[in-house]
Simulated scan of single mutants.
Amino acid sequence: MSPPLILIAERQRDARLEVRQSLEQSGFRALPAASAADIWRAMDEMIVGAVVLDTDLRGPDGMDLCRDVRERSDVPIILVGAHSSEVDRVVGLELGADDYLAKPYSTRELAARLRAVLRRRRRGEAVGTHRQTEAHFDGWIVDFARREIRDPGGAIVELTAAEFSLLAAILDHPQRVIARARLMEMAGVRAAPSSDRSIDVLISRLRRKLTYQHSSAPIVTVRGAGYMFSATVQWR
């Protein structure tokens, strides 16, 4: 099986070439992109394993492109940018990124984070192969074989790889409080300081997607302890 293709959407030409060379030395295939048009062309013509997306890309900026790519695909996205504040990371995650890396960064760290998001995606694709393939709760149906979730009205709700992995983790432990650190580990979210809000942003995104009409998502915040999936889950 050929290694995954990583799309490198980076503003600076020298940086694109440096990252491409480094990723190829790390065992990936890499394709540089200088604009939004390059991104859409690549995604139309080939299977992209992950996108490294510069927040300062020319034309539509990286943040806007992150949202647009996420609306179109569940491909893993790692945002890279010159700003490293918590606000920047949270905004990126809210727009659908799977990870955020501040510039200047080590290409070795980038390769490690790419491996992490790709492992997370593979876990999401494989989850359920050792058990029943469907989970049912409150009229929702999670089909692990197809990696699909349907709302009570039968419509498919799109989840990113990170969101699907998180949902799979909490469905495995319904009506039990799971600590934030443990949930990050179970869902495959990268190790981070206790102050990092990555898992909270993912929970917020998942809650919005699991809200149906006037029924809120069955994910409860237990202050000082973590999160709990409050609905009864039936496996079939």
Rank of each mutant, 00 (worst) to 15 (best):
G96A: 08
R121G: 03
L167C: 09
P4S: 08
L31V: 10
V69C: 04
A168T: 11
H130G: 09
D172F: 10
R208H: 14
F164V: 04
E45T: 11
R11K: 13
R223W: 05
L110T: 04
D14M: 14
D151M: 03
T211P: 02
R119F: 06
S194P: 10
M228Y: 02
G188W: 01
R236V: 09
L23Q: 00
P60C: 06
Y227S: 06
I47T: 11
E45Y: 05
G62Q: 00
H214V: 12
V80K: 02
T232E: 15
G139L: 05
L118P: 02
A217C: 12
G62T: 00
H83Y: 11
L23W: 01
A9R: 01
L171P: 07
V52P: 00
V117K: 06
L101C: 11
D56Q: 15
H130D: 10
R180M: 14
M46N: 07
L118G: 02
R20P: 10
A33G: 10
R223N: 04
G128C: 15
I39H: 02
R89T: 07
E163Q: 13
H214R: 14
V48S: 01
V157R: 14
R208W: 04
A181P: 08
R121K: 13
F164S: 07
C66K: 08
V51A: 01
G27C: 12
E148R: 12
A162F: 02
A30V: 13
R67H: 11
G224I: 08
Q234H: 13
F164I: 05
L210M: 13
R197E: 06
S26D: 01
L166E: 00
L93H: 13
R29V: 10
S35E: 06
M1S: 14
P4L: 06
E109I: 10
V220R: 15
A217H: 04
D200E: 15
E18N: 12
F144D: 06
I8K: 01
P3E: 13
A50M: 05
E10H: 03
L17F: 07
R70I: 05
I219M: 03
R11G: 09
L110D: 01
A217G: 07
D196L: 10
K209C: 00
R120S: 08
V75I: 10
Y227E: 01
G27E: 10
R131H: 14
L65S: 02
D54E: 02
A126I: 07
Y227G: 06
L31S: 10
D14P: 11
F144E: 04
I156W: 09
